[in-house]
Design a protein around this nucleic acid. Structure first.
Length: 491
RNA sequence: CGGGGUGUGGCGCAGUUGGUAGCGCACCUGGUUUGGGACCAGGGGGCCGCUGGUUCGAGUCCAGUCACCCCGACCA
C-alpha cells in the first residue's frame, strides 16, 4: 500500500488535511480561509442537510431565507451579541468599482461609499429579530418556528478545512415563544434532534450539556451543546442550541398581546449546526487508508468494480454487474458502478477506500463461475465471497451492520477516553498526556475557568445535563463544588 | 498582530562558486496489461511570486514588495 496519507499517529492534523484533500471533499480557495467544497464532499453535506431538514420539518419548523447583509447598526442593539461578534465581521463599505486611472485593473470607487455600512452576517439573530417585530403582534402569532439554510462569515485568524473556515454553510433555527418554559423546551428539543442525528446518522456519540458562562453564545441566557470526542482525544462542539431569554425581544422591541390583554416581550431560541459536522464525521471514523463513511451519509453505499482481461470477459462481467446494480437499487441501496477501462482494479480499490465507500463489490470471471461476488467492508477492511443469490438482502444487512459497528466503535473509543480526576496533579497530567473528556470538580467561577485554560489549554466543554450531584472540591481552588464538569482540549 | 518558514510546469520538490531550467507524480500518443495504486517507448507543458538594483550574464547576489503556510492570541 502506497502511503498516500500522512499517518494518523505521526501527525493527526496533517492526516486530517491530507484526507480532506485526497478524498476530494474540499480544497483551499484563492481567498484565504475560505474553501471550495467539492462534489464528493458536498454530496455528504447534502445527505446531512436532507436528514436534518426532515427532522426540522417534523418538529414543526418552516424554512425561510433572510438576507446576507445586515445594517451595521443592528448588530449593536444587543450588547453581549455585538461584544461577541464585532471582532470577526466582514464589512461592506462600497457598492461600486471603477477602472484604475493609474493603470490596469479596477479600484474601489471612492464616490460609491455606503451611507450605512453593511456587515456580512456572522449569524442572523439581529436581522431576524428586526423582522420578527413586524410578524408578531399577538399570542396567536406564536410560536414562530423558522429555520434557514445559509452561509455565514466569521473572519477567523486561523482556519482549517471544514473545522473553521471564514465562510461556512449551516442552518440556523430562530424561534419565538409566548413563555419562558416553552422556549426552554424548544431549545432542549432541538438539542435532542442534534444528538439523535449525530448518533443515528453520523454514528458520532455525543455528550449533551450546557456551556459555562464564558463559553456561552453571545446574547444567550443558556447555551446547550453536543460535544463529540475525536480520535486524537480532542473535543469538537458539534452543535449548539440557545435559550435567548428576552434579550433579543427587548433589543428589537418584539412584544405580543397576551390573552389577558397585556403586552409582553417574547421568548426566543436559536440553534445551529454547520459544515463543521464534516470534520466531526471524518475525525470519528476514518483511518490511515482514508475516509470511513457511515452508510447513511455515504454518497454511494456500494461500489462495483469489474475484473476482466479480454473484451469477451468484460462483456460477461459487465452484464452481471449491471444486473446486480439494478437489484441493489431496487432494494434502495445507492450504487456506483465503475467500469472505466482507464484505471486498474487495484487502483480503484485504493481510490474507493480513500473515499470511504462502505461496501465494495468486485466481480470477475471466477466469481461468475461460482455465482458469487467478492465483498469488502470499508470499516473492517475484511473481504469475503457472497453468493449472488440473495445479494441485495445480504448487502442491506451489511450496511446496517456497518452503521451500527461504527457507532459502537466510536462509543467505546469515547467512553475509554472519558474519566474522572480529583487533584490538580491528576488533572494536568490527564490533559497533557492522555486527552479525552476529563470530568473534574470546578468552583463555578469564570475566573477559575480562565486560569485553568491559561495553564492547561483545556476548557469546560459542557456541564452535562444528566451529571449527578456529587460533593467535591475544585481541582484548582479547593472550593466546594456539587457536580463534576467536563474538561477537554477542543477544536 | 507577534514568532518561524516557503514562493521554480497541474501537484510535490531539486537546482552547487552567478553561465542554455531539471526530477517524481499527473497529463497526451502507441503498445503490452487488468483479482490490491501496471510496464515499455515516445511526447507536450515553466517571464523561476512581483518590482528595482549589481553584472557581459541572475532561479541563484542585494534592496524593496506581495502572497501563502505553520506555531501563538480569537473562535461553530
Amino acid at each position: 500500500m502506497a502511503d498516500i496519507l500522512t499517518s494518523k499517529d505521526k501527525d493527526y492534523a496533517q492526516w486530517y488535511n491530507d484526507l480532506v484533500i485526497k478524498a476530494d471533499l474540499a480544497e483551499n480557495s484563492a481567498v484565504r480561509g475560505s474553501m471550495v467544497i467539492k462534489p464528493y464532499g458536498f454530496a455528504i453535506w447534502e445527505k446531512m442537510r436532507d436528514d436534518l431538514d426532515r427532522r426540522f420539518k417534523e418538529t414543526g419548523h418552516l424554512n425561510a431565507y433572510f438576507p446576507l447583509f445586515i445594517p451595521k447598526s443592528f448588530l449593536s442593539k444587543e450588547a453581549a451579541h455585538v461584544e461577541g461578534f464585532a471582532k470577526e465581521c466582514a464589512v461592506v463599505t462600497h457598492y461600486r468599482l471603477k477602472n484604475d486611472p493609474n493603470g490596469k485593473g479596477v479600484i474601489v470607487d471612492p464616490d460609491a461609499k455606503l451611507e450605512e455600512e453593511l456587515i456580512v452576517r456572522p449569524t442572523s439573530e439581529t436581522i431576524i429579530w428586526d423582522t420578527y417585530r413586524k410578524w408578531i403582534q399577538s399570542y396567536r402569532d406564536l410560536p414562530l418556528l423558522i429555520n434557514q439554510w445559509a452561509n455565514v462569515v466569521r473572519w477567523e485568524m486561523r482556519t482549517r478545512l471544514f473545522l473553521r473556515t471564514s465562510e461556512f454553510l449551516w442552518q440556523e433555527g430562530h424561534t419565538a415563544h409566548a413563555t419562558k418554559e416553552e422556549a426552554i423546551a424548544e431549545a432542549e428539543q432541538m438539542l435532542e434532534v442534534y444528538a439523535d442525528f449525530l448518533e443515528s446518522i453520523l454514528a458520532v456519540p455525543v455528550l449533551k450539556g450546557v456551556k459555562s458562562e464564558s463559553e456561552r453564545f453571545a446574547g444567550a441566557v443558556e447555551t446547550y451543546c453536543v460535544e463529540a470526542l475525536m480520535q486524537d482525544g480532542k473535543a469538537l462542539q458539534a452543535g449548539t442550541s440557545h435559550f435567548l431569554g428576552q434579550n433579543f425581544a427587548k433589543a428589537f422591541d418584539v412584544k405580543f398581546a397576551t390573552k389577558e390583554g397585556t403586552n409582553e416581550y417574547v421568548w426566543a431560541t436559536s440553534w445551529g449546526v454547520s459544515t463543521r459536522l464534516m470534520g466531526a464525521l471524518i475525525m470519528s471514523h476514518s483511518d490511515n487508508n482514508g475516509l470511513v463513511l457511515p452508510p447513511k451519509v455515504a454518497p454511494y453505499q456500494v461500489v462495483i468494480i469489474p475484473i476482466y482481461r479480454k473484451d469477451e470477459e468484460f462483456d460477461r462481467v459487465d452484464a452481471a454487474a449491471k444486473e446486480i446494480m439494478a437489484d441493489l437499487r431496487k432494494a434502495g441501496i445507492s450504487v456506483h458502478y465503475d467500469n472505466r477501462d482507464t484505471y486498474k482494479p487495484g487502483w480503484k480499490f485504493n481510490q474507493y477506500e480513500l473515499k470511504g465507500v462502505p461496501v465494495r463489490l468486485a466481480i470477475g470471471p471466477r466469481d461468475l463461475e461460482n455465482k458469487q461476488v467478492e465483498m469488502a467492508r470499508r470499516d473492517t477492511l475484511q473481504k469475503s465471497p457472497v453468493p449472488m443469490e440473495g445479494l441485495a438482502e445480504h448487502i442491506s444487512s451489511t450496511l446496517e451492520d456497518i452503521q451500527n459497528s461504527l457507532l459502537e466503535r466510536a462509543k467505546k473509543r469515547t467512553s475509554d477516553a472519558t474519566y474522572e480526576v480529583n487533584t490538580w496533579e491528576e488533572f494536568t497530567d490527564a490533559i497533557a498526556n492522555r486527552g479525552g473528556f476529563v470530568k473534574a470538580h470546578w468552583d463555578g467561577t469564570p475566573e477559575t475557568e480562565k486560569i485553568i485554560k491559561d495553564k492547561t489549554k483545556a476548557t469546560i466543554r459542557c456541564i452535562e445535563l444528566d451529571a449527578p450531584e456529587e460533593q467535591g472540591t475544585c481541582i484548582l481552588t479547593g472550593k466546594p463544588s456539587n457536580r463534576r464538569v467536563v474538561f477537554a482540549k477542543a477544536y
